[in-house]
Design a protein around this nucleic acid. Structure first.
Lengths: 74, 74
DNA sequence: GCATAATGTCAAATATATATTCCATTGACA
DNA sequence: TGTCAATGGAATATATATTTGACATTATGC
């Protein structure tokens, strides 16, 4: 992941999750991942897989665009 | 990646790439990854990272929704 | 106050995305 | 025909996403 395109990602996972009254553990269980994975993604501490993002969007009823965007600073 | 949400992903990366008259190598170089990575993603043989998907969308001028979708069969 | 749920975090292990290198195939084109 | 660019594919190595398990902290309800 070198090159001129070094990008930071912003997400509204936490917001979408609490809107659905889901806990990190609850969402994790629905998505088939661990609580830690959800927590770290929410915290922006890692870079999830496309498949997982699509699953989360499915569960939270949001598009990828709504959940994840390129962070607009530098 | 267990659980009830087992999803297959469809992509139009190849189409978007040739529309831009880019070769796999050219796109790879722009994205800062290897040609093989692009080839394997186009072939649906692996599950890219969100960050890489966003970079590819940036380069190819497409949204994530346009590039990647859940495959509608089973 | 105490219990318990929800979250943060850390270390070690595992799975898998990505890199690297190499060889084979195909198609364009001189 | 022969060369070369573009792609497909495989094997091994590395980076990192994800798991597992454990402990600490911060709510929140009783």
């Amino acid at each position: 992941m070198t090159g001129m395109h070094d990008i930071k990602i912003d997400n509204s996972l936490k917001l979408a999750r609490v809107e659905k009254s889901l806990t990190q553990s609850g969402l994790a269980e629905l998505a088939g991942v661990t609580r830690q994975t959800i927590g770290l993604i929410e915290a922006g501490k890692y870079n999830p897989t496309l498949k997982l993002c699509l699953i989360l969007g499915l569960i939270l009823d949001k598009s990828l665009e709504e959940l994840f965007r390129i962070k607009e600073d530098e």
